[in-house]
Amino acid sequence: MSRLPVNVLTGFLGSGKTTLLQRMLASEDLADTAVLVNEFGEVGLDHHLLRRVEGDIVLLKSGCVCCTIREDLGSAIRDLYSMRSRGVVPPFQRLAIETTGLADPVPILSTVMGEPVIRHHFRLGNVVVTIDAVNGGFHLDRQPESVRQIAVADRIVLTKTDIAEPHEVERLVGRVRAINHAAPIDLAGDPNLDIGGLLSSDPYDVGSRGQVVADWLRLAGEEREHHHDHSHGHDRNRHDAAIQTFSVTLDEPLDWTAFGIWFSMMLNRHGDDLLRVKGILNLRGGDAPVVINGVQHVIHPPIHLDAWPDGDRRSRIVFIVRGLERERIEASLRAFLGLSAL
């Protein structure tokens, strides 16, 4: 049975999250999506409404099911799935969750991966984060949750670029890149923005996984060059100064057993500070590359790609960490991988 992807849409108050959500709800790309929102009132559903299913659940003209979160998120997801099974709502193929502006998205990801009933039916999809070009820097300065949202994002949508000065936009992009260099940044104002793709293009979607991983590697490569050129040029504040993003490249094929021992030990001791770890591994004894993807303690099951996304067959791992030293992480990883050479 294929599990339904769960997307998390997050972003600070006033960051354009609701506007993006409204565009999503009106888009035919999300016709088979169920969306959990905080409040109907905020989203302004009236002109999209087709019919009310029950008190908290409405069906939109686009085909999208929209539901408010009454109690806890876990109950809301289970209830919605139960209604899908009973035919009360259409058989949606995707679930999107809007978080409150101040939310740290990681507990939501833990709910999806941690509750056995939910995990049986759902898998994690992209975390989409909005940040606005006018106030984004202010939020990064003042709100640690804002930094965390950027750090765990799979896709970042920059909003309000039309009313921001170009140098403000450039500066914010630099700060966002310094926190998370492996997530593509899209402009909300781009008329060609692929709303559906924001949610659906992930490493677990067979149709887009090659491109998604290629994008990770391309962005990681750009970061390496940028790091050499301008690593000290950013204006880092007190919240994002502790967060570091870097890539480790391993020339030789590696042993999965040794990697798993190292990574499980890292997660146990430093999981809270491993904000994102993702990459592509060349495993000893295997032809197909393996993709790893984790957010703090939440680890996606590793997946095999059919082919390498580019000509480079080295293992490349992107780390986004808080308060951990890059040199020590790399030395530790190499020491553990050396165990398997014996």
């Binding site: 833990s110 991966m113 941690g114 056995p116 995990r119 999965w256 798993g260 021992i261 990574f263 499980s264 997660l267 999981g271 591994l281 495993l283 004894g285 295997g286 393996v290 790893i292 303690h297 939440v298 680890i299 996606h300 099951p301 590793p302 095999h304």
Partner: peptide, 21 residues
């Protein structure tokens, strides 16, 4: 079960999942 890592006792662990054996 570990609430943080989502590992259900007796189920496959992610460390078992990559070699395809």
């Amino acid at each position: 079960m570990c609430g943080l890592c989502g590992v259900l006792g007796g189920g496959p662990h992610w460390t078992d999942g990559a070699t395809g054996v």
